[in-house]
Design a protein around this nucleic acid. Sequence first.
DNA 1: CAGAATCCAGCTCGATACTG
DNA 2: CAGTATCGAGCTGGATTCTG
Lengths: 128, 128
Amino acid sequence: MKSTTTKGSNAYAAACPTRVVLDRIADKWAVLILGLLQEEPIRFNRLRKQIEGISQKMLSQTLKKLERDGLVGRKAIPTVPVTVEYSITPLGRTLSAMLDGLRVWAETHIEKVLIAQKRYDSGSRGSR
Amino acid sequence: MKSTTTKGSNAYAAACPTRVVLDRIADKWAVLILGLLQEEPIRFNRLRKQIEGISQKMLSQTLKKLERDGLVGRKAIPTVPVTVEYSITPLGRTLSAMLDGLRVWAETHIEKVLIAQKRYDSGSRGSR
DNA sequence: CAGAATCCAGCTCGATACTG
DNA sequence: CAGTATCGAGCTGGATTCTG
């Protein structure tokens, strides 16, 4: 934890809002989940199948965090085997809108990144 | 690795561009570094002091990744104790511009998030 | 169906020491 | 100054099992 005493020369203090939000969105599962819920409410197991590679544990954990942050809503429908529907909240939607920008950036610039990587890797011979 | 066989019903395959970019920006240090370099080129130890809580190791690692992705440039100036200046590339700048949106979102909505958290925490009594 | 609990392999990351 | 190398604690996250 530390003190977070105003050291003065820190551009990014540990407690700034950016850090808090970053701790949330610096979680690829959270970003992917928000992206899906943006379109429509989805049930737990459905989400699980939609997101390749996520485990039940991570999905559960991530949803809980997102719910805690007020970014997604949880609605338990008392059917026989209980059904739970997750949806994005208005707040979550504003964030997801920002993230859309990121998704667009990804698709637009991914190629340049991959090229840069290739060049970097071939340049530093001998490493590894 | 796994197969990544086109399963068909996966909205987010493991290999899509979003995932790749996410693996990069889902790294709070990377985001913070880009934010700083956006303003001006900075030397290694200077960066270290500017970003509260980052270790020398993480800084070094993260810079290397960012350089590999073509998002930041590295220029070694052959002074006596060598000086290395990191700067953001045009490509990095376009990404950082997106991230600015995120930073703005953070400052704008952080309060709502914190309120939601407080409500959530007080609601789930007994947990723990 | 939706999740909680447990176990544990593996990666992350900080601390420390050393180099060019 | 700008790193690299190594070690170890701790967290992450997958697999599995169990419950309402």
